[in-house]
Nucleic acid binder design. Structure first.
Length: 776
DNA sequence: GATTAGGCTTCG
């Protein structure tokens, strides 16, 4: 090692590192002699800043003072360090340090080159000559700190994020709100973009660069807490941002309340006091009350057919696919709601335990990673634990050779780093890895092992069948054909019952059936989504846009009352339309502690707005609440209208169960930036309605015909009823699923499913717990 | 000691 630290143990330096060298006095140094087995030692009396030569080599110049022989004529000497050694030393040295330099060259500088004109000696040290520098360390400290100021920095001050000044270099603490795991930039360094927030509720986006991957903050998820030292503050496009400056150093902590406070850092030495401990805990408490825990961390069994999410998994196999894509086979011990696609590769290129991967079957998924992620993926070791950020799922419908429709779930890690897309290896010490290992150990491999027999027995009858499995899942025919397997994970204790037998029996009972889906209703998707009150159990239609416009217009016929504008809760603005009879629209911007938040965090109350206007505003502002002027206060419209609009999501309340409270109650929400629908509903006295699927299925197994109802289900094959009306992608997925169950052509499909009869003659069919089988 | 990126999903 070219740079070593000599620590003191009980006040005695551990100098055995130097025992292989002989010490020489400054006065006996002569140019041209062999110093490959010698060392000199002295106190750092002067340090110049790092300079660079024309060819890019770094040079650091210091002056050492000999403690012994202090009355000697020659008791100081200049030492020049070159290249990487110079940079490393610049990070570590500070005035007053005791330093030893072993293996060096002595040269004589010409008298003209020295200020006093005397003949003077220089020491040169560089890695090529195997020079080694030893620094005596009294106590653990953050070295980089001192390299900046050359003043012992035992106490750091931390600047709150609302007091940052352009051009300053500061130390900050914050909770991670967004991050891109380190990736290779287009320049020479790795880059990580990290947005933090602190108790001042001010956010700061930081651009962190380092030639060393490990030197960037070791952030695993949003909510982690970071400490940055020597962050430079600058302004770019009118926004304040942080950027690494010389000597940047970071610590990262888990953000979970109660978790041990263990700093993650690659720095060998750093300053960490009880005050730091307190700061971390204070930020944890603040974050738990002010930052909604909207984790994108999901298990495979919970993924939707169209989604971006973060996956914690173990690497089973990897393979080159082509120049721009690379295959990763991973698992997390749970089964996806749809079988994973299988990416075609040549058998020989797959690295990994093939028999184990085969044994896992549908527990293993295929992920294609693209472009910039390929080189990272290629470098991963089989068996390692990973977090893959912003992994994209896509449900794909494929027509197989046997002409049946097949569904498969694709996993893509697209190119680029948007939304923090990337891969990070997790250490074994990570608590999420700990949990994952337990799941992997107890994963039920038997479900995929004892399938063959079931499949064969059902293949014999020659019907094409659909299949479904897992907690909420659907397995397609092709998997069955390829693997000669059927997936049966739940309710295997239930024998299949013919429909004629079910029709004769009394409810409630549970059955497993195998039947053709003759038809289902409603055929139009929007008709199958309803609003459901969890308190009074009332079901109602989701208002159409046309009706909604009328409801909004009727709800706010009154001209906005000027008396109710600009209160302590909100600032108001009035617009008058030109060609619509001078219609007045009032917008009230809700303040956060008296200050207007950024538009993407701002709730606005709107009076007299049309649906199209509200839609436009809801894209710009965090939340919109339609209101009207009441006698003493602004008030909510009739609950036929949504009480809250976020992006395209309309939140409704139950007319029967809600008892409206004053708008001013919004003031009681502590955090006026995240506007969680349930919290808003609560302070306004509203019982929120849930989006649910309501559908009817007609089954026929040749022995009888049975109507099955899917009731009050917030999800259908993992597709949330609350999102499907506003997502084209989810609607396509739904169409694919229904087309497979009930193909538009003459083909008839058998479905095996688990039925739960609720009350005669209504039978509640719970897809959540269904078990189905496949056959070809 | 500059550069990188400057969050804001691909379209395979």
């Amino acid at each position: 090692m070219p740079l070593e630290l000599i620590k003191e143990v009980s006040g005695v330096p551990e100098v055995q590192l130097l025992s292989k060298f002989h010490k020489v006095d400054f006065k006996s140094l002569r140019p041209g002699c062999d110093y490959s087995k010698k060392y000199i030692q002295g106190k750092l009396s002067l340090i110049s800043s790092l300079t660079y030569r024309g060819n890019g080599t770094a040079v650091l110049k210091i002056e050492l003072q000999e403690k012994e022989n202090s009355n000697s004529e020659v008791n100081t000497i200049n030492v020049l360090f070159f290249g990487k050694l110079a940079k490393d030393c610049a990070d570590v040295f500070y005035q007053g340090d005791t330093i030893a330099v072993a293996r060096f060259v002595v040269i004589s500088a010409s008298p003209s080159a020295t200020s006093d004109g005397k003949n003077c000696l220089f020491l040169k040290a560089f890695e090529g000559f195997k020079s080694t520098v030893y620094v005596y360390v009294k106590s653990v400290r953050d070295f980089s700190a001192e390299s900046m100021s050359l003043v012992p920095a035992t106490h750091y001050t931390y600047t709150p994020l609302d007091q940052l000044k352009d051009g300053t270099v500061v130390n900050v603490y914050g909770v991670v709100k967004f991050f891109k795991p380190p990736y290779l930039s287009k320049g020479t360094d790795y880059c990580s973009v990290v947005t933090i927030v602190d108790q001042t509720n001010v956010k700061l986006t930081c651009l962190l660069f380092s030639g060393n991957y490990e030197a960037l903050p070791i952030i695993y998820k949003n909510g982690d807490i970071v400490r940055f030292h020597r962050l430079k503050i600058q302004v770019y496009k009118n926004e304040t941002q942080g950027i690494t400056s010389s000597g940047f150093a970071s610590l990262t902590f888990e953000g979970t309340l109660g978790a041990p406070v263990i700093p993650r850092t690659s720095s060998k030495y750093f300053n960490f006091t009880s005050e730091d401990h307190k700061r971390v805990e204070a930020l944890r408490v603040w974050a738990s009350n002010h930052i909604p825990s909207s984790s994108t961390l999901l298990k495979l069994c919970d993924v939707q057919p169209m989604q971006y999410f973060d996956l914690t998994c173990q690497l089973l196999g990897k393979a080159e696919v082509d120049g721009t894509s690379f295959l990763l086979k991973v698992w997390d011990g749970t089964r996806t709601p749809f079988p994973s696609w299988r990416v075609l590769i040549q058998d020989l290129v797959l690295e990994g335990d093939l028999s184990f991967i085969h044994q896992l079957q549908n527990l293993a998924i295929d992920i294609l990673v693209y472009d910039n992620h390929v080189r990272v993926a290629r470098s991963l070791k089989i068996g390692c634990f990973l977090r893959i950020y912003s992994l994209h799922t896509k449900l794909q419908s494929v027509n197989s050779e046997t002409q049946s429709t097949l569904l498969a779930l694709e996993f893509h890690l697209h190119g680029g780093t948007s939304y923090g897309r990337g891969i990070r290896v997790l250490p074994e010490s990570n608590s999420d890895v700990d949990q994952l290992k337990k799941v992997l150990e107890s994963a039920d491999l038997t479900a995929s092992q004892h399938l063959g027999g079931v499949c064969l027995s059902q293949c014999e009858d020659g019907f094409p069948t659909m299949s479904s499995s897992g907690s909420v899942s659907l397995y397609e025919v092709e998997r069955c054909q390829q693997l000669s397997a059927t997936i049966l994970t739940d309710h295997q204790h239930l024998e299949k019952t013919p429909l004629c037998a079910i029709l004769k029996q009394k409810a409630p009972q549970q059955y497993r059936i195998r039947a053709k889906l003759r038809s289902y209703k409603p055929r139009r998707l929007y008709q199958s989504v309803k609003l459901y009150c969890p308190e009074c159990h009332m079901l109602q239609e989701v208002p159409h846009d046309g009706d909604l416009d009328i409801i909004l217009q009727e709800g706010a016929t009154k001209t906005p009352d000027t008396k109710l504008q600009n209160t302590s809760l909100y600032d108001s603005n009035i617009w008058t339309t030109k060609d619509q009879g001078e219609r007045k629209v009032a917008i009230h911007f809700v303040k956060n502690n008296g200050i207007l938040p950024l538009s993407n965090e701002c709730l606005i109350l709107i009076e007299g707005g049309m649906l199209s206007e509200i839609c436009k505003l809801s894209n710009k502002f965090h939340s919109v609440i339609p209101v009207r002027s009441g006698n003493e206060d602004l008030e909510l419209l009739d609950l036929s209208a949504p009480f809250l609009i976020q992006r395209n999501v309309h939140h409704y309340g139950c007319k029967q169960c809600s008892s409206l409270k004053p708008i001013q109650n919004l003031n009681s929400l502590v955090d006026k930036t995240s506007w969680i629908p349930s919290s808003v509903a609560e302070v306004l006295g509203i019982v929120p309605l849930q989006y649910v699927f309501v559908m009817t299925f007609t089954f026929d197994d040749g022995t009888g015909v049975l109507e099955a109802y899917l009731m009050d289900s917030d999800k259908f094959f993992q597709i949330p009823a609350s999102e499907i009306l506003i997502s084209d992608d989810l609607q396509k997925s739904m169409d694919m699923i229904m087309d497979m169950f009930c193909p538009p052509g003459a083909k008839i499909v058998f479905i095996a499913l688990h039925l739960f009869s609720l009350r005669p003659p209504v039978i509640k069919q719970t897809f959540q717990n269904e078990t189905t089988s496949t056959a070809s």
